[in-house]
């Protein structure tokens, strides 16, 4: 065998028709399983969270209200900072750093 066309012909001759209904059914079953998983995982997590809240009441109530109030305070602080010149400078610096990082990543890492 010396020519590329001989090799191409050999590949073409080797192409046996592989086709069966079991494969189609297996693919459909796998897709259905993934769809169920997409629904089941968040549902399961929510159920576990509710069970944990029920089991630890009223500690869960105290914890959640303190977390919420902490988040609200943090939100107010971020809002105040964002309205200041310092906040705008920090935000612009962060955005510029992010863009630079994304460009460098694309340029030097992702193509490896």
């Amino acid at each position: 065998m010396s020519d590329d066309s001989d090799l191409i012909r050999l590949f073409a001759e080797d192409d046996s028709a592989i086709s069966d209904e079991a494969f189609v059914s297996a693919v459909s079953a796998r897709i259905r399983m993934r769809q169920y998983a997409v629904l089941a995982v968040p549902t399961l997590l929510t159920a576990l969270l509710l069970a944990a809240v029920w089991a630890t009441w009223p500690a869960a109530y105290v914890f959640s209200t303190s977390v919420m109030s902490g988040l609200a305070t943090l939100g107010a602080m971020v809002g105040t900072l964002a309205n200041s010149q310092l906040g705008m400078t920090v935000a612009l610096t962060l955005v510029a750093t992010g863009l630079l990082w994304a460009w460098l990543f694309e340029r030097f890492v992702a193509r490896d």
């Binding site: 592989i18 086709s19 494969f23």
Partner: peptide, 22 residues
């Protein structure tokens, strides 16, 4: 449409399974 996709699988399985078997 799952039935339409199953038809695509039916038609294309030969080439993909052949490629991966090689």
């Amino acid at each position: 449409d799952e039935r339409a996709f199953a038809e695509l699988v039916r038609r294309r399985q030969g080439s993909i399974r052949g490629l991966l078997r090689k």
